[in-house]
Amino acid sequence: MESLVSGWLTWRTAMERALYGEDGFYRRERPAEHFRTSVHASPRFAAAIARLLVEVDALLGRPDRLDIVDIGAGSGRLLGNILACVPPDLDARLVPTAVELAPRPADVPSRIAWRSDLPARITGLAVANEWLDNVPLDVVERTPEGVRTVLVEPVSGTERPGPPPSAEDTGWLEQWWPLSEPGDRAEIGHPRCAAWASVIGRLSAGLALAVDYSHSREARPVYGTLTGYRDGATVPAVPDGSCDVTAHVALDACLVAGRRAGATSSLLTTQREALRALGLSGTRPPLDLAHQDPRAYVAALCHAGEDAELTDPSGLGGFGWLTQSIEIPIPALLTRTG
């Protein structure tokens, strides 16, 4: 496969080949087979997104056509679950689109458009759930001789110091992830910023949402976050095409890039806070319900357990939620507290 070509590469080039090359990981595999996302943890994640979509629709004045775009759609399950949740009036006007490089699964509803690139224009809601963390990027490390771009041998994953980073890399690093001590590492996030800005740039009116592993400038991890996933387990990040290769996202930098691309309102919060605002409380049902309506009690208890997983601050609930909008404010439902 293309990703098995030997030789020293930058991490960005190695990731691009390993994940998206002709026989790359994401052209062969589905995310659900290797790691647990919110989409596959519970359909209640999609129900919360559907609730957000209803709010966006209202803020846009209920247009004749409303887009819902899933970027990095994987199996297409998120869109399928959203379609099962929206009210009939909205469903009749809804145009669902999956953006995904892998082939269309046979069980995806026929009304969902399947494409490999972003639509030219979007009016409605664009969702990028665990997409930005797979946008390839370079890795740098501070050495006694200064900051150097890290090179990797893709078959083995062995690393060595390379040349100094480019001016663009250095500028991003100084603003968003300064390195102070030899051995400190950073992942250069401007490709993620550019990818996110490309989403905002296609938003005619509506809201874009990025959900991902993230960190902020005040708490960047000293040695970076580059890792691999295969068959539900964490594995070394070897860019040979056999595993997912991912790194957490500097969503604060993406927020600024989104503003420069035209976003007029922004909110950066956690999945825990956002899903609670969208009605996923995780509250256990009253015990009396077990006697009054046993089936309803069991269903509510199941929902509470799923909500708890989705909002667990040490797991999925700790993900960052970046929402940015064009022509409308951030829905008030998301900005409420308590």
Rank of each mutant, 00 (worst) to 15 (best):
A186N: 11
C193T: 14
A205K: 11
A47T: 14
A263N: 01
V235R: 12
L267E: 06
P182F: 04
A257G: 02
A261S: 07
G262H: 08
G241R: 05
G74Y: 10
P96Y: 14
L334Y: 08
I122E: 06
D244K: 14
D293W: 00
W176P: 12
E2N: 06
G74K: 10
D293P: 00
R104V: 03
G7F: 09
P236A: 00
D240Y: 07
T158A: 15
S75V: 09
L301W: 10
E2H: 07
A14G: 12
V238I: 12
G282W: 01
S42R: 00
I330N: 07
A205N: 09
V147I: 15
T311N: 13
P119G: 11
P164R: 14
L125I: 02
P105E: 09
L278Y: 07
P285I: 04
W177S: 15
S166R: 12
S314V: 03
D312K: 04
S180V: 12
V39Y: 00
P109Y: 10
C85T: 12
D252M: 11
Y20S: 00
G171S: 10
R217K: 13
A120N: 05
G7D: 09
G7S: 10
E33P: 02
T123D: 11
R93I: 07
V86L: 06
A308I: 02
R44L: 12
L310D: 02
E16Q: 15
D67Y: 10
L9S: 11
A98Q: 05
G157T: 02
L310H: 01
D23W: 09
A102S: 14
G171C: 06
V249F: 11
R17T: 02
E218W: 05
E16P: 06
V5T: 15
L226S: 06
R121A: 13
A253M: 09
G206N: 03
R284L: 14
E181W: 05
L267I: 00
R295D: 14
G189D: 04
V99M: 07
V235K: 10
G241N: 10
L151M: 12
D293Y: 00
S242P: 04
G258S: 08
Y297S: 05
L207M: 10
P285F: 01
S6E: 08
F35S: 07
T283W: 12
G24I: 07
T234M: 12
N134M: 09
G318S: 00
P87V: 07
L268D: 10
D169H: 15
A126C: 05
P191H: 03
L289P: 06
P165A: 03
L151N: 09
V39E: 03
F35W: 15
R44Q: 08
P63T: 12
G305K: 06
E273F: 03
L137V: 11
D184E: 14
H34D: 01
N134L: 09
T97H: 00
P43T: 04
D57T: 01
T264M: 07
R17L: 13
I49Y: 02
A237Q: 01
R115D: 04
L207W: 04
D240G: 11
T269R: 06
I122C: 03
N129E: 04
L83A: 03
S281F: 13
G318E: 02
G338N: 09
I200V: 15
G146R: 06
A48E: 00
